[in-house]
Structure formats: C-alpha cells, structure tokens
Amino acid sequence: MTRFDHPPPPRRSCLSVPASDHRKLSKAWTSGADELVWDLEDAVAPAHKDEARRAVLAALREAGRHGARIAIRVNAPRTKWCHRDLQELAASPVPPSSIVVPKVESAGDLAFVDRLLDGVRAEAGTNAPIGVQALIESASGVANLREIATATPRLESLILGYADLAASLGRSGATAGEPASWLAIQDAVLVAARTNELQAIDGPYLGVDTGSDFAAAVGHARDLGFDGKWAIHPRQVAAVNEAFSPTEEELDWAAAVLDALSGAGAVALDGQMLDEAVAVRARRLLARKVGARP
C-alpha cells in the first residue's frame, strides 16, 4: 500500500476540543498539544451541527498563524451530517491536516470517506493531502481491525475510544476506568498499527483531573508502546507530552545504536548485542522527537 510521501509528525498529545465552544477553541491554541482535534460529533448537539461546522471552517483560517496542526472529528458514517462535514472541510481553502472518523466498524466506512475526499479535492483542483485517522469505538471495529488498518493509503493512525467501546462491550463504569482491563484490545490495536506502519494513539482518560489515576493511565499507554494519547483538558497536555517524549539519554542511545549498526548486521555497544530488532526501537525513539520526521 502506498502512503503519503511524508509520514505524519509525532502525535504525543491530541487535545479534543468541542467545536461549538468558541472560548475553548480560542484557548486551545496555547495548550502546547501536538494536535488539536476539533470535535463536530459527540461534543455538539444535533441542533448545532451546522453552526459548529461553520465555526470550524472559520477557525481553520487561523491555524497557520498559530502554527497548530488541526484534525477534525467529523460525524460518524451513516449519520445525516457526515457527508456534509467531509464535503465542506475538503473544499475549504485551508483544509485540516487530517479527518478523524469516529465509530469506524469496517473498511467500507473508510472507503466511503476516501472516495468523497478524493472527489471533492479533485473538483477543487488540488492534490494537497488530507490524512485520515480511524477511531475504534465498538466491538465490530475491534473485530475488523485488520481490514480497517489496510482500507486506505490516507490512514495515519488508529485511535482507541474507551467510552463508546465500553458501552458496546457492556462494561461497567468501574471496569471501564481500569487500564489493565483493556490490555487485550490495546494489544490488538497496537499489532494492527505496527503491522501497517500506522501510529497507535490511546484514547483519553475519562476525566479532567491530572492526579495519580490519570498519571497511571498515561504511563500504562506509554509502556505498552502507544505513540501518544488524547487529552480532554488543556491542563493534561504537558504531562502527556512529557510521558511520550524520549529523554536526552534515550535519544543519545538511539543515535549511537544506529551509528554502530551502519553497514553492520550485528555488533556490540556498551556490552549489548545490537541487531535489527534493537534498531527498530532506536528508530521509533528518534521518530518521537518533536520536529523529527518519523
């Protein structure tokens, strides 16, 4: 599968912002998040969908001035708002960097998005890329991860959405908040992402605090191997960025590994045997450095 010429930059933190709340949209510019996700779906009441879409289109014109990377969470496929969201965003003179497609349950959901984006961008006379991110939020989405991950070359990441997925699986609120209870599904998302060179992004901690439970959820996702995590409040962004950023020592180690392995199949560095498996970890650490190209 041929993807865009340049892989997407790191997504340590993705701050979800209600598109219908002008105050929060304005405040988010200074959050420090790697990506702002303006939400047209769950955060917007049905009566305000059109108004929120217009607000997003207007705010996109400011993105360049603020230097922010913007993703738009559109309404789900099969809803009466999805096609209009995609048409107007794709036709915008300043389109978002990517579209977050919620409640993806099959490859067909992404194929629909892909064809519509292609058609609208062709009509607009531009081939500027718009990426796609798939939000996995149902039992069907988990069951079909393999086909979803290969549905379109636009696809940049798989995102795990806990609230809707907990409801789909019939999990209680208490269980839904336990990081360890999601291990099998988290691993499935990671395997699908790694197999297809996609980013794996953990869903938000279901609360706005930054206490020990939040820190445990962030650390759990980082240690499993996720590339980043969603946040639902600006105060969470700094902690997420720090958790998913490699330390200077890790970056030095990664650079030394790749330098030592240059032109060699297996060598030793500081008593550690190095091979391609170690090189993969080194490349992934360097890819997480902000400003680096994965």
Rank of each mutant, 00 (worst) to 15 (best):
T2G: 14
R3E: 07
P7S: 15
R11H: 05
S16M: 10
A19L: 07
D21E: 14
L25P: 12
S26V: 12
A28V: 08
A28E: 04
W29S: 00
V37A: 15
E51H: 08
R53A: 07
R54T: 08
L57K: 08
L60D: 10
H66F: 05
G67Q: 06
R69E: 02
H83E: 15
R84Q: 12
R84L: 09
D85Y: 03
L86T: 04
A90R: 06
A90G: 03
P93N: 02
V94M: 02
V94C: 02
S97K: 08
V100H: 03
V100P: 02
G108Q: 11
G108D: 14
A111N: 05
R115G: 05
D118F: 01
G119Q: 13
A124V: 00
G131P: 00
A134I: 02
E137G: 08
S138H: 00
S140W: 06
G141M: 02
R146E: 11
R146A: 14
E147K: 00
I148T: 05
A149W: 01
T152S: 15
E156G: 03
E156H: 11
L158I: 11
L158K: 01
D164S: 11
A167D: 07
S168D: 15
L169R: 15
T175Y: 10
A176H: 10
P179A: 11
W182G: 14
I185Q: 12
Q186D: 14
L190N: 13
T195K: 08
E197N: 15
L198M: 12
L198V: 10
Q199L: 14
A200Y: 09
I201D: 09
G207H: 09
H220A: 15
A221L: 06
A221M: 04
A221H: 12
V237F: 04
A238I: 05
A238T: 08
A239E: 09
V240K: 07
A243F: 00
A255D: 07
A260F: 05
A260I: 02
A268W: 05
D270V: 01
G271Y: 03
D275F: 04
A279I: 01
L285H: 03
R288M: 10
V290R: 12
R293I: 07
